[in-house]
Each structure stands twice: as C-alpha cells, then as structure tokens.
Design a protein around this nucleic acid. Sequence first.
DNA 1: GCGGATCAC
DNA 2: TATGGTGATCCGC
Length: 858
Amino acid sequence: MDEGESSTNNPSRPWESYNTVFTNAKAGMEGVDKEKVQRIVYEMSKGSKYFQNEERKEALMKHKIEHMRERCAKLSSSDLSHYQKVVDRRILELEATRDLSRIWLHVDMDAFYAAVETLSNPSLKGKPMAVGGLSMISTANYEARKFGVRAAMPGFIARKLCPDLIFVPVDFPKYTHYSDLTRKVFKNYDPNFIAGSLDEAYLDITEVCRERGLSGGEIAEELRSSVHSETEGLTCSAGVAANRLLAKVCSDINKPNGQFVLQNDRSTVMTFISSLPIRKIGGIGKVTEHILKDALGIKTCEEMVLKGSLLYALFTQSSADFFLSVGLGLGKTDTPEVRSRKSISSERTFAATGDERLLSSKLAEIAEMLSDDMKKEGLMARTLTLKLKTASFEIRSRAVSLQRYTCSSEDILKHATKLLKAELPVSIRLIGLRMSQFSEEIRHSDPSQGTITKFIVQKDSSRQNMDDNDSFDLDASKDRLSNDERLSLSFASHDTSYDQLKDVVEYEEQSVTPEQECKKEEKRPQVLEGDALLRKHKECNSDTSARKTEVVSVFPQMEPLVWVDGYKCNLCGIELPPSFVEERQEHSDFHLAQRLQNEESGPSSSTTPTSKRRNLGKEKANSKPKKQKPNQKDVNLSLLVDNNKKTSQCREVAPFRDERRRNPEEMKMALPPPRLNLSPSSSLGEPRSLPSMSDILTSSKARKLDLKIQTLGPFFRVTGKNADTGHEVGRAEGVVRPWFGRGLVLHLDTIRLTKETMVMDKSLLGVGLYVGAVAIRHGYDCGCRTAQLLAIYDSDLYHSKLVRFYRRIGFEEVKEVSGSSIGDMADMLVWGGVGTRMDANIHHLLVKWSKVFLKSIT
DNA sequence: GCGGATCAC
DNA sequence: TATGGTGATCCGC
C-alpha cells in the first residue's frame, strides 16, 4: 500500500493524520511491521491459483489504465475546452443542489463481531482473536490487528502472521441480537434511520438537534454513550456532516470509539474535501482509484474538479457526475425511499471439482437453500442467474428469464441444471444461484403471457409460393429481371449503392471442383469460440459448375407449391390443413431454403423437410431430438417469418421497399436522440447514426475481412473471407419476403462460421457479427423490420451456446419449440427440429451495433 | 436482458 | 492444503 504522507496535524485536515492512522495505526495497527506482513502474505499466496487470478486481474487493470491513457492523450485542446464548458455548467447545476440544512450522523460499530464475541466470552479480552475460520476472517480484534491480521484475510495467512491467534466461528444470530440493541438506540434519534448493515447506520439528526438545542457532536456523544450502555460495552465511532457521503468519511476518522464533526458550511466542507484521498470515498475502490490515479493523475477529491474535463471526456456522464459531486463535497441528504430488495441468492464454495454428479448435487443443495429463503421471504421471481467460480477463480454468470414467477426448488433446479450443463466440462469451486425480477403483488398476471393472438383464418391462401410474387425482387426499381434472366445470371450481384460491394464475386468466378467439394463435405467444421459447432472451413459451396447447374436445376422447380387435395404438400407429402396459413407459408419457405441449401451442398442432399438433420418426421415428433456431438453440427439458424399474422383477407401486398428508409435524412430523424451520456466511445457527443452498409464494410476491412453480398431475387447470401488468405470464414444466407400487413421480413436461413474464424478473431462477436450485420443491413435496406431464426436444439450444451450467441448479438427468444404442443408441430414440420425461436427488431439491432461499426471508422 | 466488473460490508 | 457470502450497481453489449 501507499506510504503514509507526512502527517501535519492541521486541524482543518484531519484526514491526513487519519491517513497515517489508516496505514499505520488504524484499528490498532500501529507498530505493525508492514513490510513483514506484506512479505508473508506474498509468500503464502505466491503461485496459488488465487494468486494467479489476482495477477490476471491486475494485468487487466493495467490494460484498462493504458487504454485510458491513450484516449486521454488523443484529446485535443478543443475537445478539452468543450468538456470544460460541460464541467462549468455542471458545477453550477450541482452547486445549486447543495443542501447544508441537514445534519447526518454515521455510526459504525468498532470491530463489531469481535467485540460481540468478547462481550459474550470475556476471557478473550486482551488476546488476539479473529472471527471466522482458516479460509476467511470476517473481523479481527485490535490485539490481532497489531500483527497485521485484518478482515477479508484468509485465516491460514492470519495464523502465520499471528501464531497465537484465536479463531472464533461466526455467529450471526448473536450479532443480530446486538445489532438490534444498537438499532433501538438509533431509533430514538431518527426513527427512519438507514441501516447499512448489522454494524452501521445513517441517521438524520437534524430534528433531534433542533428540538433539543444540541449540536451534532453532542448528539453523537450521547448516542455513542447510549449504545455503549445498552449493549453493555460495545463501542462505536461516529461522523457528523451535512450529507451521508461526508458523514461516512468522518466516522472513520477517529475510529475506534471516537467521532468527528464536520461543520455545515461550504468552505469547511471544501477544505475538508480538497486533499482527501479519493479512496476514502464510498464507491471508489481499488480499481477506480488506480484508474483515476495512474491514468489521470487524480489522487484527491479536489483534483476531481480540477480535472473535470478529463472525467467528462473519458467516462460516462453518470460516472463523471459522481466524481464531480464528490469533488464538490456533495452527497445525499434526503431520507431515501424504502428500498426493497432486488435479488436473493445463495452460493457455496467447496473443493474444486469437475465431477458432474458432485456438481449436480451441490447445485441441488443450493437450489434448495435458495428456494427455502425465498419462501421465508414470500418471494417469487422469474430471472435465474447461475454463478460459477472455476478452479482458477474465474467468475462466470449465466442467466435465464423464465416464463413464470417461481420460488420452487424444482423449477430453480431444472433451469439451473440447464445452465450448468452448458458450461461443462469445467472444474468448479463455487456455485451460486440468484433470483431476481420479483413479482409484484399489484401485477398478478403472468408476464410471459404475450398475446398469442390467433387470427381465425377464413380462407386459405392459395398463393404460397413466393415465386409469383414480384415484390420479392430485390431490385424492383431497376432492370427487373425475367425468370429466364435470373437463371442465366445465377446469383447476380446485388446492385448495391455501396462501392464496397462492387467486387462482389459471381459464383461463376469461383473455382473449386466437385471433387474437392465432396472431400470437404466430410470434414466437420468447428464452432464459434471453439465450443459451438461449425461447418467446415471452406465450404463445398465454391464449386462453380455444380453450383451453376444446381441453380439452374433448382430454380425452375420453384413453381408454386401445391396443396394437393387442399392439404397435402405436393413436394413432400406433408399434410397441413388450410387453416394453418402461417405454417403453410413457413413450410413453403422451408422448401425454398432447402433448395438453396442443396444448391450449395450438392445434389446428394435431400430436398424435403424430412431429410438431413432437420428431419423430424411425424413419427419422431414426440421423441427427443437425437443427441449429436457438437462438432458434428453446423451452426445453423433458420429465420422464421413474423408470427403475428393477419388473415389473408387483411393482407396488403407490402411495397417491396419502404422508401422512407432510403432517404438518409429521414432515416436520421427516425433515430433515437443522441445520448447525453458521454460514454468512452462516443465522440464529442455527436449524434449517432445507424451504420450504413459502407460503415460495416469499411469497418470489416480493418479486420482483414472481405464481405460480399449476393442476391438472387429474394434470396441473399453474405460471405466473409479472410482478406489475406481468401478463405471463407463465415456466411449467412436467407430470404427477404413480405408478410401480410407487416412489411417485409428477413428470413435468415443459416449463419456459419468456420474454423479459420477463430484464428482471425477470437471474439465471439467478430466475424459472426459482421456477417450478420451485412445481412441485417441488407434486410433494413429492403425495408424489413423483423428477423427471425430457429436455434436448433440438438443437445443441451450446443443449444444453450447457440441461443446465447444469438442473444448476445441481439435476438430474443420468442418461444420454445419443444414438440410438446400441437402448435409446435407446425414449427417442427417447417424447421425439421425442435429449438428456440428467436427474433429481433432490425432497427434495434442496427442501433445496438452502431457503436461497433461506427467506432472503427472514426 | 445478459454477463462481467466493481464495490461495500 | 488453503482466499467468503450477499446484495447492489454500472457498463457495454
């Protein structure tokens, strides 16, 4: 830790001596051989998993600081003068909120747990003692602190520092009892006091002071004395100041068994705050302290104001506001609303293990504990978070939001198990479960009950095939092609207003022999981030002749799909009654997608929904999907059409394009207002616009990624190639089509990433995001509002990863297609499998991604 | 809404 | 031999 500064006993700067006290003598640590403590702690930690993790975290912090420095160095003087204006304005605004009319008192019990234990066992008095165990110490008494023993220190290290240390196990009921005694006292001074924890509280003593004509200091004396007698001997320290933030700082100054009063006048406050080290402020911890100190040279609260322009340039507005108000000595003065809990959790540490059965049983125990706690509190919640600490001390969390509120251990365990399985195999030393998003009594309805409005279909739409629908032509405004022309052109380049797309490669230009294609077909690709699965790198798709022929042979088949006898698909024989309008449309899509697929993967592929892995014939409809090894699968999504449909009667043929969206000016107006929040990546508060196709492509080039989009009528294909090797590393394909009254929908059939992706970009969102972004932007340019997909459920592990991946790039789960309901049947017929249907609002996706793509071009 | 981090006690 | 549990919040996806 830092060496204590020279301690001038300047009464107006008590924190300086306090600071000395803190490093040297706080809580009886005077005379501690800091060097020796430091050395022993280091010796005992060195090389351990814990230690390694600490090193990792430290490196991360250094990196953060370095990054902050770089950004700081890039700020121009005009940037700074701009932010200085922001600061000046903000200071005025904040200053206007300053309230010096309240008197706040912060009470903090001295070494509370240890003191209570000594109270109930006087023989401990005078002996070094710690509450806790060999793994962790909660509190140490003053005798122990002389040896350097401190709270949050592992017991085995403490014992090394102080071999005679007595360990007393924690006894919360006992502490709660004494805590209640203190609170009875607090209540006499402020019935609405805020209990921070068992051993500390904030009291607004303004009224008591006024009523009794006593100063804050006098009240503090009296209160502390009262606490001492009511608890039969416990001592506490107090701080008195105009707001809670300052009072908290003050209560630490003359600890233990002391108090400090800061007068309620502005200049006293400013003097007090000016040289106060930032670390003394609640909310500024080790990391923030380092970042501010090492990157910006801010060590004292005063410098928060002096360097305010840097803070506003480099941090979010809310962070900068906080820092600035700290620098001004401002803090909360109101009596806050009663805050209800927002989550409840249970977690346990154990000997690290990777044994699935052991972990399962741990998980079950924790689910049980959590459920019990919830029942005791009468809580129901719908978001479950699994927390893991790996053997290497890495913390992971995985969450799901459930359809219903629950507190049952069965529900919790069921979903927790899913989450856990998705992480295996992994060696774990801690499992935790947390529930949040509580139900409110007011809202009794099930939040999951999205309106599954089923519109009654009165008339079968006989036009199921998009072939006869001109609105699918992606380039309706110019040189519309006849069917014949389309065929001869094969996958024509998207006309594109983006020069970056000029280099679109026609399939004819590609050169891979059918032999190569067949060989490659055997190889299995790897997954995203090495975990998920993938399609092999360099797909068989690159065959020229085969593809061409395939295209020619496929597209002529795109005559309208016919429902024989009104209900039977003429292509595959599947039966769908006329009332299943949407399912029929999706089924039709399936055939089209399948053709596209065949065109790519060769003639050997079947063309019916009952083939390949999407196969889930009627006879298997209720059976569990076959488990496959992850590495045998593609990352494969199927985009569904929007589910909220109207009857054919209501149908309007949507214009192919929403022309409004083609107008850049109007497009801007449709955007959300620029964020006030000056986050690190926002440049000078300029309004953000959606990433254009050019933005995406430009940005991708910086990553050595060549993106191309090809279209054929409503179909599109996005390919991403490694700019250096020319190898394909990812692709997305699908179809754009109108949906009744809903405009156009982007139906993405597949997104695949190859093994090489890993080499190019370790980021999960890297190549996949770019490929997806081009597709989504394409959909946007076509006027689509919605995109949907099906994350195929092949195994717990794989499925969960897939869903998580799509969630991270912005899709949301719509429903589970599990095969358990009649409604699922149609989905299964269309998609040939079970899984999770997910969708996304295209505009939202672009907004969400804008930073990624706009950042890299500025 | 999710996941990682930070913070406090 | 060996480094906690609970809850909140913020930030960036």
